[in-house]
Amino acid sequence: MNSQNTKSQHFGYAAIVGEPNAGKSTLVNALLKQKVTIVTPKVQTTRFRVQGIYVEGNAQMVLVDTPGLFAPKTRLDKAMVKSARDGFDAADIAIFLIDLKSKQSAQQIFDVLSKTRAPDRKLYVLNKSDIVKQDVIDAVKQAIVAQDANAEIHVISALRGMGVDELRSRVMQLLPQAPWHYPEDQLTDISERLLAAEITREQIFLQLSQELPYGIHVDTEKWEDYKNGSVKIDQAVIIAREAHKPIVLGKGGTQIKKIREAAQAEMQKIFDRPVHLFLFVKVREDWAENKAFYKDMGLEF
């Protein structure tokens, strides 16, 4: 699996927990120094746990990007929140990500801590420090210490990379002594087919300003590798209502073309190979109640 002596290895799961749009996915990508999870300005972008793997020296860290903590309403909402809590429960290290721009962000973390037992190794990480004043940072620190006198607090900006290197080093130091679980060159636990679908969904979120993206699912239906190293990918963009079709397609197909071109360019960058992407818009009113969808996402139905 790797060249390290297993007796000297360190390994562990670090789960990033926080409210929607706190910057969890941005932090995961920054800590891993590569993109394994999609990022958009919209809340609840992450629907399932994404694991990214980072190796440094004799230590292997698995970062778990969990869906945000929020009050669930639909079946999908409930599955997402359960996925977040399961990822937290199984972690060796908890990274509590607090959005300094949100007044309730820290309180949500305290609510989680009041209902479950956190790992002994835990870090409070205050994000978006580049866009708030120092007195805001100081007030949140005081609130945390009032709840946890021994709290270890890190102040960062995941987007700007401020404090990220120091946070990464600290997490690596906290990993327990244990054999590695993954090959040295593995970057994530999700398949390329699923990552490709997520990349397209990311572009849909970025380019459609309406609430429509929350009712959209992307499925990689066909993946064909060519001898010249390129790949042909057929994806279904699944929507719940026929009336949504013109919004996704755009006038004369201009919107879906923009989505396809942007997603294809991102895939080529990540997969480091030529990609031929084809998108087909399909209407399935009950897709969010389809058991197979939850299974593909690793969610509980």
Results as ranks from 00 to 15, higher is better:
202 E>V: 03
42 K>I: 00
253 G>M: 01
136 V>G: 04
142 Q>S: 12
287 W>Y: 10
112 V>R: 08
89 D>P: 00
110 F>S: 03
194 L>C: 05
8 S>Q: 15
59 A>D: 01
295 K>D: 04
290 N>S: 05
72 P>K: 02
271 F>I: 04
199 I>W: 11
68 G>W: 12
81 V>C: 07
63 L>H: 08
189 D>N: 13
199 I>N: 05
23 G>F: 02
204 I>K: 08
3 S>D: 15
243 A>Q: 14
167 L>D: 00
77 D>F: 02
36 V>F: 08
136 V>Q: 12
291 K>E: 12
99 D>F: 00
77 D>I: 07
52 G>P: 07
1 M>N: 06
168 R>K: 15
264 Q>Y: 07
85 R>A: 02
259 I>P: 08
190 I>R: 15
243 A>K: 15
17 V>A: 12
257 K>G: 06
20 P>I: 14
190 I>V: 11
238 I>G: 00
296 D>M: 07
202 E>C: 06
131 I>E: 14
276 H>N: 09
258 K>N: 11
290 N>Y: 05
256 I>P: 05
143 A>H: 04
299 L>R: 07
158 A>K: 02
145 V>G: 01
155 V>F: 00
178 A>M: 10
75 R>P: 06
236 A>L: 04
149 A>M: 01
61 M>A: 13
63 L>E: 07
